[in-house]
Write a protein that binds this DNA or RNA. Structure first.
Lengths: 187, 187
DNA sequence: GTTTTCTTTTGATATGGATCAAAAAGTGAT
DNA sequence: ATCACTTTTTGATCCATATCAAAAGAAAAC
């Protein structure tokens, strides 16, 4: 179980904690295109991807669908600003492949955290890694060209490029499908 | 003291905690252009801006100076990925005005957090607000035009526009000085 | 006040990427 | 296989923004 392995990387997991985790996280078999989060609704759950690929996206002012991020094996995912404040999300989340994810509700997570305070450390780490990724994106979007960003993505998450549809990747990079297609087919 | 007021917004601050906070946070009178953080060094301190304006910036591959973010009254600031992992920072931080900031070292913060575990909540909240801001930046950089981004900044942090030099604002928005100057002087 | 230095503005030109349109390739259902 | 639908590629044109260069304005130093 990847989930436990990942947690153990951050904090020691005694037997009782392991059991509590197994109890609170629900196994979810998901199909491609399945929505794990709807824009306008509160993000009630934190997910962990055991297998598969998901993306968070939103519709911008012109109605175009823009990918905020991709998430895959070993990633925790949620819409943080919705989940942590339990307020409506501006983003949706969908599976891009069939997969297996573990899900825990906000309430259950809070309970787990109060029963096992060491787990706060995990929450912190997760937030930190969200933030780190976000910072990198900002830096990339600020002053790199489209193809530099494409190349970085290819280095950092090559599987995304193989697995996600071109349109979703393009909007993630801040460019149109057409431009991405052209970038691919030269050099 | 703004620092305490801000903390009280998130958690109750009993007398002993207040005293501990006053003891651990050092008052720092800063001059314009002063560096509170150097790229290449570990971010040893978390700062709270009581008065003044600061920015975090980095030098990109072409050697150009790019503003990552602006921070002003009531803001906590540090280079999170350096501070939380105590590893070398890619970013520098400088004051853009004379000001007053409170500073706490990583070690002292950890100690404060273990003496007053409720403060973990504060750390979490701070991380969340860093993340929220970062998400908004990404969305803006992904698919808004330069002048849309300028207008949003004007709405959200009008004081930045009055107080920061144009070059620093331009790179923050992901555009050149010249373009920003032109955006300003039309419409 | 004059000189030096830094910051902002203005101008001319070049270019990366958007947009619109349509063809080609791929995927799925019947 | 065939038809309908989705995704990707290719082409032509246009525009926002970069780049390079230099003038104008403001702030700091003498």
């Amino acid at each position: 179980m990847l989930l436990l392995t990942e947690i153990e990387k951050v904090i020691p997991v005694p037997k009782e904690m392991e059991e509590a985790i197994r109890k609170k996280f629900t196994e979810l078999h998901c199909l491609k295109t399945e929505r794990l989060q709807q824009a306008g609704k509160i993000a009630r759950n934190l997910f962990f991807i055991e297998k598969g690929l998901a993306r968070i996206f939103y519709h911008n002012h012109t109605g175009k669908d823009v990918t905020y991020g991709f998430y895959t094996e070993s990633d925790f995912v949620t819409v943080p600003e919705s989940f942590y404040t339990q307020s409506a999300s501006k983003y949706s989340m969908e599976m891009l492949e069939d997969g297996l994810v573990y899900s825990i509700s906000y309430k259950d997570l809070k309970q787990l955290l109060s029963n096992f305070p060491q787990m706060q450390h995990l929450e912190n780490k997760t937030l930190q890694s969200f933030l780190l990724k976000a910072s990198e994106r900002i830096v990339a979007l600020q002053f790199q060209t489209a193809s530099q960003r494409y190349n970085s993505l290819m280095k950092k998450q090559p599987s995304i490029i193989m697995r996600a549809p071109l349109g979703a990747i393009a909007s993630y990079l801040g460019i149109t499908q057409e431009t991405l297609s052209r970038i691919r087919n030269r050099k």
